[in-house]
Amino acid sequence: MAAPALLVDNLSVEFQTRSGVVKALEGVSFNVAKGETLAVVGESGSGKSVTAYAVMGILDAAAAVTSGRAVLGGLDLLAASKEAMAEVRGREVAMIFQNPRTALNPIRRVGDQIADVLLRHANVTPNAAPREAIKLLETVGITDPVRRAKAYPFELSGGMCQRVMIAIALAAQPSLLIADEPTTGLDVTTQAIIMDIIAERASATGMATIFITHDLGLAAERADRIVVMHAGHVVEAQRTRDLFAHPRHPYTQALIAATPGHTSRLAELSTIGGNLPDLRAAKLPACRYAARCPRKLAICDSSLPSIDPTAPEALACHNPVSSPPMGEAA
């Protein structure tokens, strides 16, 4: 296998809060290949976004990376200098966010916001930047881009704003795009269009995509491979089809069972018992799912199988489900 577009190895992040230290991420490892779409799924609070922010180097001041590396194009992003990271952000790795309307500067024309990134990262002269911005708007499917470039975010719909966000992210043709819940808050039709645009740009440029979502159904439709996170741990990673066919971690299995599909009825849906553990606790069990897990063993409190960051598959469980077909679960 060729070198991955991004390799995250043993990443841990802690937050200093008033009520103690929160171990938000612990030993997170995964990789994404060039041209691949990787979905990172999990409940809210599972550390998906924190992982993305850590890779981008935009964690807030209360957070600290306590271990690990994130290698992109031979550079460890977690150890890179501020200046080096400012070069990488937007140029090598770009990110789009949920709530596109608040993610854009409300008092700056969208064309100018795209031009800001072009001037910073792409070899574009100030004179040419507005023209290039309009071209980018065209590539993300905005009609009448000349007029729209002069618009302010409040004059555009949420879907339009997300297209502008994508144009900003793709301005410097990054090798990796991180999309953090990019379609949350958009209507279903717009969701599909936005995901199509991302997929189209990715296949046109060979860009890798990390797609962060809590929506397992969306991940199933769009991702080549899925990483499942729970309470700051990676619990399982598999190719999409395999993951749904043979979920191995009990949490993955519960998550799939709790996801409404086209055929499932409300009565068939199950909920996942218990809550996410309190990550402030001084002594957490080695496996953070242990308290909620029906298959828990004594060893789960003290040790966790390590995962290979470079492998396409991962499983952090001592007592995995022995690959039962989906129907028999739960």
């Binding site: 935009i58 937007g90 966010f97 993610a103 500067n105 800001d116 910073r120």
Partner: peptide, 23 residues
């Protein structure tokens, strides 16, 4: 400074003077 659009500007690698002044 904690607004979403400033996060976007940071994530786009804009210089910190650009982020603080223009955004």
């Amino acid at each position: 400074l904690s607004a979403d659009f400033v996060r976007t500007a940071r994530a786009s690698g804009l210089s910190s003077s650009k982020v603080i002044v223009t955004y």
